[in-house]
Simulated assay, not measured.
Amino acid sequence: MKSLPKKKFQETDINSQFQSAIQDLNLAPKIINFYSRYSELKNIENWIFNQNTRLISVLGTSGIGKTTLVKKFVDSNLQKFELIIWKSLKYPKSLPLLLNDLLQVCQEEVK
């Protein structure tokens, strides 16, 4: 995910700047329940938007809500990114194939 500069945007600024935003969320899960993870959500928002963190790893045992937390962040901040592509690494492809898939999504949206 690419983060925006640290300035405050009004909704009209965001809409005009990212009318052609690329969002490929076909593989993203649907959020059914979100259980009081708002402090973690605020931490992620702070790291990305205030501290300009480029990479965040969300780690933990299976079933604790890592995917739900990240998807909730994405859903809440769609308009703040010009490119969002959700890929599962459960059955990972080779790096060249993954890069090819990512570039293909970008090229399809440009057409």
Rank of each mutant, 00 (worst) to 15 (best):
K80L: 09
V110M: 11
V58W: 01
S36L: 15
K30A: 10
L89P: 04
Q79M: 15
K87F: 14
V74Y: 09
F73V: 00
R37H: 09
L95D: 06
K2R: 15
K30T: 15
K30F: 10
F49W: 06
W47C: 09
S3D: 12
I48P: 03
E45H: 11
S57D: 07
L27R: 03
V74D: 02
K6L: 06
L69A: 12
I32G: 15
S3N: 14
E40H: 12
S3Q: 14
K2F: 15
Q23K: 11
P29G: 05
K87S: 06
K80T: 06
Q104D: 06
I48E: 04
I85W: 03
S62I: 01
L41A: 00
T68K: 08
L59V: 15
I48K: 02
R54L: 12
V110G: 02
S39T: 14
A28K: 00
C106K: 10
S62L: 03
K90F: 07
N100P: 02
K42N: 12
L98V: 09
I44V: 01
W86M: 03
G60W: 08
E45Q: 05
I44D: 07
K8P: 00
R37Q: 05
L95T: 13
L55D: 10
S76D: 15
N33K: 09
N15L: 05
E109A: 12
L78A: 13
S76C: 13
I85Q: 03
Q104I: 00
N77K: 07
V110F: 05
N46W: 13
L41K: 01
S57H: 07
L97M: 08
E40W: 08
K6I: 01
E11S: 05
I56M: 01
S94R: 15
N43C: 15
S39Q: 13
R54M: 14
R37N: 07
K42E: 11
N50E: 14
I48S: 06
K93S: 14
N46K: 15
T68W: 06
F34W: 12
K6W: 02
S76V: 02
F9E: 11
F9G: 12
N52S: 13
Y91W: 13
L55R: 01
I85V: 13
L69H: 06
Q104G: 01
K71H: 04
K66A: 01
R37W: 04
L4D: 13
N77Q: 04
E109S: 02
S57F: 01
F81K: 04
E45I: 08
K93E: 14
F49E: 02
A21M: 03
E40K: 10
P92M: 04
W47L: 03
I48R: 10
P96F: 00
